[in-house]
Amino acid sequence: MKCGKSIWGSKLMPEPVLSISRLDSHYGDFQALYGVDLTVHEGEVIAIIGANGAGKTTLMRSVSGLLKNRHEAICWKGQPIGALRADQIAALGIALVPEGRLLFASLSVEENLIIGGQTGRKGPWTLRRIYDLFPVLEERRNQPSTLLSGGQQQMVAIGRALMSNPVLMMMDEISLGLAPVVIKSIYAALPGIVSEGLTVIVVEQDIAKALSVSSRVTCLQEGRVSLEGYSEAVTREEISRAYFGI
């Protein structure tokens, strides 16, 4: 079955931008994902939750091309992309804000943002717009990114991803290690970002946060999908069962 067109080509539902089917991901001999399915439609905000080691980051690394997979396991707008290199996937309009931010230490704040636009994709996001979104970055544009606070670094990481004018932006644990007030200010920027028509996958440990920003939620447990549903409809019991397996 190539890219599941038979299911999604119908009139009932538009074709998803991203469809993952029966994805098995491996780190060497270690298997981290088992037959994961996920579909994302344009303009959606999807939350992925799960305990530590459930496979959330592996899923992000697989979609972004940092992990090689079966080519047909991941499809983008109907085309298989599972075995493409990360730079090829970035050029298609899939951006990742990686866990732990991982800014380039030898680049200044502004250079980190500029290199995000390396793909040359056209769209609403420019250096100017990023500075409007996070004014503090403009003040510190020429400083090495390592001198910034954690929250400011996270802003650079998000700005860096936006600079590629992505269709899909994946954010992996963007609140990890940040003070609650900082998390709040970063999430406050999210609606403005999404209103540009961006599709977003949010990986979060904070379940309440994840549910409040997303329309659908997928829970992973030990490398398998344990729950799928609409964020407003899932119950606390369902989540705790899917999350902890009890």
Binding site: L96, P98, I115, Q118, T119, R160
Partner: peptide, 16 residues
């Protein structure tokens, strides 16, 4: 410099 810092993340920026 970006590739020297983090090869994988540089790749995410669309750098081959």
């Amino acid at each position: 410099r970006a590739t020297s810092d983090r090869q994988d993340i540089a790749q995410l920026m669309g750098l081959n």
